[in-house]
């Protein structure tokens, strides 16, 4: 049984000009101990869908789903209070900006200890010991002294390590990492990713890694879900995705990788932008930017089966060649 199972998740925001669906009918499953990567450009609804699971969206957001199960519990029927006993303990989250994600007014020790006090029965002394162990485990030197440090005394990488120590303090079954290395420089980025991978292996923890960096995906993920404009457009195991992407968007993303650019000229890019609230295409949302689009794509997109990576596309690619073109012809 999947650890986290979501079917047909939709998140819409009330805006001045009407409702806007940031996440539009997304399915998602994460198995225990699995590293799932959610990839997509800014505005593709990667973070929003995970914030919806955590219940961290502002009140202007409306969340609906057919199924939202975590570890056998139906999260849709839970009260906010019941959800809060799981959030932090069994599902934890770290964020993109480690420096501003820690509360500037409280020490590192207080912020970790608070998590332990909320979800465990440890007494004050045991919490302190545990916090030191946790800081040690995420590679923070002289953890004992760091307990009394304030966030502004830490670097970005240190802050993210503290966030990881805090998020993993109650041994969660699932950790959601929302672009955990985007704000960090490259050397620190590699260290943080290694740390996350080691923690997953050591503690039998599943990881949802939200990123827009295909390099990070290749390095970390077991399975990849590609999102575009709030929709799941493709989902495959990492090796298969990189060798044979089925959705034109995935394919375009991969060919935009500097490592893959074969020509001597400029780096390939995807023309246009992710559609926002206005000017949304009526058919396939990727159609205006897709080189394989035909008339049929302006009416809608068909969901392919698992063999074709669940691609949301009328003309899924196989080995870089668009198939079933005769349908649109």
């Amino acid at each position: 049984m999947a650890l986290l199972e979501i079917k047909n998740l939709t998140v819409s925001f009330d805006t001045v000009t009407g409702p806007f669906a940031a996440v539009d009918g997304v399915d998602l499953t994460v198995d225990g101990r699995e590293i799932l990567s959610i990839v997509g450009e800014s505005g593709s609804g990667k973070s929003v869908s995970m914030l919806a699971v955590m219940g961290l969206l502002p009140p202007s957001a409306t969340v609906t789903a057919d199924v939202m199960r975590f570890d056998g519990n139906d999260m849709l029927s839970m009260t906010a209070k019941q959800k809060r006993t799981i959030i932090g303990r069994d599902i934890a989250m770290i964020f993109q900006e480690p420096m501003s994600s820690l509360n500037p007014c409280f020490t590192v020790g207080f912020q970790i200890g608070e998590m332990l006090r909320r979800h465990t029965d440890l007494d004050r002394k045991a919490r302190r010991t545990r916090a030191i162990e946790l800081l040690d485990a995420v590679g923070i030197p002289s953890p004992q002294q760091r307990l009394s440090a304030f966030p502004h005394q830490l670097s970005g990488g240190m802050s993210q390590r503290v966030m990881i120590a805090m998020a993993t303090s109650c041994r969660p079954k699932l950790l959601i990492a929302d672009e955990p290395t985007t704000a960090l420089d490259v050397t620190i980025q590699a260290q943080i990713l290694d740390l996350l991978r080691d923690l997953c292996a050591d503690r039998d923890m599943a990881l949802v890694l939200i990123t827009h960096d295909m390099g990070v995906v290749a390095q970390m993920a077991h399975r990849v879900q590609v999102q575009y404009a709030g929709q799941r457009v493709e989902e495959q195991a990492v090796r298969e995705l990189f060798s044979d992407p089925h959705h034109p968007y995935t394919s375009a993303l991969l060919s935009a990788l500097p490592e893959r650019a074969t020509g001597r000229g400029h780096l390939p890019s995807i023309a246009g932008m992710v559609p926002g609230q206005h000017g949304r295409p009526t058919g396939c949302l990727f159609e205006p930017r897709c080189q394989f689009a035909t008339d049929i794509c302006r009416r809608g997109a068909e969901r392919q089966d698992a063999a074709l990576g669940h691609a949301l596309c009328n003309h899924p690619l196989v080995n870089g060649v668009a198939t079933r073109m005769e349908v649109g012809a």
Binding site: M54, L56, R84, I86, A92, E97, S101, L102, P104
Partner: peptide, 11 residues
Amino acid sequence: DYVRTARSKGL
């Protein structure tokens, strides 16, 4: 952000 972090702790 730190208010969101506090909420993510289940407080």
